[in-house]
Design a protein around this nucleic acid. Structure first.
Length: 156
DNA sequence: GCCAACGTTGGC
DNA sequence: GCCAACGTTGGC
């Protein structure tokens, strides 16, 4: 099992939105960055755990945990000319973009802010801290445990 | 809203 | 295949 951090702008799709949708499960579509795409296509697998991160807000933070429930499959929103994630280069035989399905796991009573992450020397290697704009990032087991500890969530 | 960082595009 | 121009992300 692997750990990941998924970024989203809550104004676009928030952790509450995930919690409120049917089965608390939703396709993670619209990723249009090749490095993130590669993770979704090749490495993110059902059963993996996700740190759900809210970006582009006054206090960016990890706000909860989610779980991958479906391996990568073609992101067909790239084929919809009327959709906001349309990519004219994508086709059914060459979908280019991939997505996974994610399910709500746990809300953090105490979100872990970007500021807290940046101030923790043990988290200095996180892509998040290096100011990478990567929207799908790998998280090490140690980093995962640290974030959970900072959120006050017991490690089961 | 600004702007630095950085990913993508396209001319050559 | 280089690299300048351009577009996007995301913290502030």
């Amino acid at each position: 099992m692997n750990y990941w951090l998924f970024k989203t702008e809550p104004g676009c799709f928030s952790f509450d939105d995930l919690k409120n949708c049917p089965d608390m499960t939703e396709p993670w579509d619209g990723v249009r960055n090749f490095q993130a795409r590669n993770f979704l296509r090749d490495a993110v697998k059902a059963g993996d755990r996700i740190l759900f991160y809210h970006s582009n807000i006054p206090e960016p933070a990890v706000v909860g945990l989610a779980e991958v429930v479906r391996d990568g499959y073609p992101d067909f929103t790239a084929l919809d000319p009327n959709g906001e994630h349309f990519d004219p280069k994508a086709s059914p035989s060459n979908p280019i973009w991939y997505m996974v399905n994610v399910r709500f796991l746990k809300q953090m009573a105490k979100p872990v802010t970007l500021d807290q992450v940046k101030n923790n020397p043990l988290l200095a290697d996180m892509p998040l801290v290096k100011r990478s704009r990567l929207s799908i990032q790998p998280v090490s087991p140690e980093q995962w445990q640290m974030i959970l500890a900072m959120a006050g969530i017991p490690d089961r």
